[in-house]
């Protein structure tokens, strides 16, 4: 099944209507300022499990939404 995303304004729609946007989270263990910039620019958390992420509803309201999705199953756990 194709991933479905629920837009709070437009309703449930196939993922193909949206653009993916990531929320970069630099781990606290990285303290050096340059190292934090590098991490933020390139490194990815890429979790196998739930992650909070942003989606842009390109084909509808053209607004960003936030949701939590389990990357192992594509199950959307909560919209925000």
């Amino acid at each position: 099944m194709s991933l479905q995303i629920s837009c709070p304004h437009c309703g449930p729609r196939p993922v193909e209507e949206f653009l993916y946007g990531e929320i970069p989270v630099v781990p606290d263990s990285i303290t050096d300022a340059d190292a934090r910039d590098l991490d933020r620019a390139f490194m990815r958390n890429n979790p196998e499990g739930p992650q909070t992420e942003r989606w842009f509803h390109l084909f509808g309201c053209r607004r960003w939404l936030t949701l939590r999705r389990d990357t192992r199953t594509d199950e959307v756990m909560e919209a925000g």
Binding site: C10, G11, P12, R13, P14, E16, E17, L58, F59, G60
Partner: peptide, 21 residues
Amino acid sequence: EWELPRERPAFAQGSVAGIPA
């Protein structure tokens, strides 16, 4: 690919034939 609203009149938007409509 998505469900149309049932009430009338209604406004809806999304992909129609792959075009943002």
